[in-house]
Design a protein around this nucleic acid. Sequence first.
DNA 1: TTTGGGAAAGTAATATTATAACGATAAGCG
DNA 2: CGCTTATCGTTATAATATTACTTTCCCAAA
Lengths: 174, 174
Amino acid sequence: MSKPSQHQRKIKQNMKHRDNHSVCIKTALSRAEKRCAEDGQRFTGLRRQVLELVWAEHKPAKAYDLLATLSSIRSGVAPTTVYRALDFLQERGLVHKIESLNAYVGCSQPDTDHCGHFLICEACSEIKEIENSRVSSWLEQAAQDEDFIIKSETVELIGLCVRCQPLYGERATP
Amino acid sequence: MSKPSQHQRKIKQNMKHRDNHSVCIKTALSRAEKRCAEDGQRFTGLRRQVLELVWAEHKPAKAYDLLATLSSIRSGVAPTTVYRALDFLQERGLVHKIESLNAYVGCSQPDTDHCGHFLICEACSEIKEIENSRVSSWLEQAAQDEDFIIKSETVELIGLCVRCQPLYGERATP
DNA sequence: TTTGGGAAAGTAATATTATAACGATAAGCG
DNA sequence: CGCTTATCGTTATAATATTACTTTCCCAAA
């Protein structure tokens, strides 16, 4: 309500990003390639294909959907195939699992060592990874109050993204 | 490092709590009863038993483990039985699901309307729900930066609880 | 160039988690 | 009491994930 022009600007940013999504994919792939090379790991055809499929949209990809798609472009694909590739990609921080959806998304900041924090739109399913170092330090603080030492974080915020708010009047999925 | 005596105090608090855990359970049950009465909902024997089992420990309870235990004290128990009861309890805020574990814990603050935030010890599996209104308002802030409206939050912090830190030297599970 | 070792992928089976569909029963209400 | 509806029983099946074992492929050392 407070800053409509800024709101519009963010929507445009978002649109632009969608139009150029193929750039995202390419970037993700080349970063993955680089990352694997550095680690002395093999970025095989299978792994590349799975990562490409995960990146096909900024939406959570279900393992069995990846399996189905992958089967159509490659033979001898079983659940194991997909899960192994996903495990590999997760270990290298190239993909995150969204626990509340049992689904996977490409990591948008694979260079920084981190666990992802996500905004998940319940209307359009788009996922945005928030890069917000404040969040982690805040959570650290909260944990410290209990003398708890954090090793990894699952933070998944479900709600309405900037584009879907006008459509759903700030209420839940119709 | 900084406050060893306070650390000790917290450990003692924790111990004391474990010794008196039956109190937890009773409290949880009577709160549930009250809550259901207020809502005009039936707190049936089945629902009570499931809630009791979930509260048996401060550890995540798996649906199929509940199923097995429940089967031993009641006949005609199927997966549906357990999931229905869990759904009921979740809707009323009496139980939370831990997404990263596919497991369920009793809610320690069923009176306040909230989504839970959890500290999960990877060594002993104990779960502590953090009641920390700061956390939610921090996350709101982070979401606002993206003009995102939060409807619900999944926050699960994995690490070492106060009792397990000395045992595992602040490192991951052995 | 060959070959041996290890990583990756193929294959089959199975475990784990969750839901759907439909009928039977029992609790509350007029 | 008889009606309505929530609850529960029952069966089947869907969706997600892992284990174990075999085969293939890559790469590097001989």
